[in-house]
Design a protein around this nucleic acid. Structure first.
Length: 231
DNA sequence: AACCAGGACGTGA
DNA sequence: TCACGTCATGGT
């Protein structure tokens, strides 16, 4: 028997299809753009893409992805989407480059701190605790880095996840990050494909039904036969 | 013109 | 532990 969490995954996957996370910069006809890669689970390929995902995870903290893209492209244009360059980049320059992503003073510090940590890793896969000990990396950013940059099955919880699953009555509002994370992980197969797509699907679904309060009640998950059956 | 974005940290109680 | 203020740009 499938768990409710598995059933909701299938409903969302049927609704939206593969999401192709984490989006990566790519050159196309001399233009730099940021693209999803639905159905391709072999990314990131290069070490530089791992680093790019880590910076994106920091830059997108409480910030729309469109603003993050501008910051990433700025860094790329400056040939600064690389750890060695960022390491010796003046804080002011770094801050100006990532300015469109907001909180640019804090995020410049966070990126500096992460870059030092990343270089010291020397290519090894970081543990979750190691990531959490880096200034500026909290639980969601750590899990995003693990799941999308390093393909470690660590489920990502964000504000959307809480909003959706409280609304459909599957989690209580007072639960903290770790508790919600365990709810998902205890009810899902430990599978990179599922973890990656599930979080991405949650974000896509939330953008459609949870941007404004008056939309919450129109979430199709509320009227889904399968969900109501289990509840 | 408020309100919110794929959060995290510092502070005081 | 926990609620609350702060950080900041850009789109709706």
């Amino acid at each position: 028997m499938n768990t409710v969490f598995e059933q909701i995954f299938e409903i969302l996957f049927d609704m939206y299809g593969p999401q192709g996370w984490w989006p990566l910069l790519k050159k196309q006809k001399g233009e730099i753009l940021c693209a999803y890669h639905p159905g391709n689970y072999d990314l990131p390929q290069k070490k530089i893409q791992i680093f790019e995902i880590c910076l994106g995870a920091i830059l997108t903290q409480n910030t729309s992805w469109q603003n993050v893209i501008k910051a990433l492209i700025n860094l790329y244009q400056l040939d600064s989407l690389r750890p060695r360059t960022i390491e010796k980049m003046p804080m002011d320059d770094l801050g100006q480059a990532i300015r469109p992503a907001g909180y640019f003073n804090q995020k410049a510090k966070k990126i500096k701190a992460f870059t030092a940590f990343y270089l010291q890793l020397n290519g090894k896969v970081p543990t979750r605790d190691q990531l959490l000990n880096v200034w500026g990396i909290g639980p969601e950013t750590a899990d995003s880095i693990l799941l999308y940059a390093y393909k470690v099955a660590s489920f990502v919880i964000d504000a959307y996840t809480r909003r959706i699953f409280v609304n459909i009555g599957l989690i209580q509002d007072h639960l903290k990050y770790h508790d919600i994370k365990k709810q998902f992980e205890n009810n899902l197969k430990k599978d990179i494909f599922i973890y990656q797509e599930y979080h991405a699907l949650i974000v896509t679904h939330a953008k459609a039904y949870y941007s404004k309060k008056d939309l919450y009640a129109k979430d199709p998950l509320l009227t889904s036969a399968k969900v109501n059956l289990i509840k």
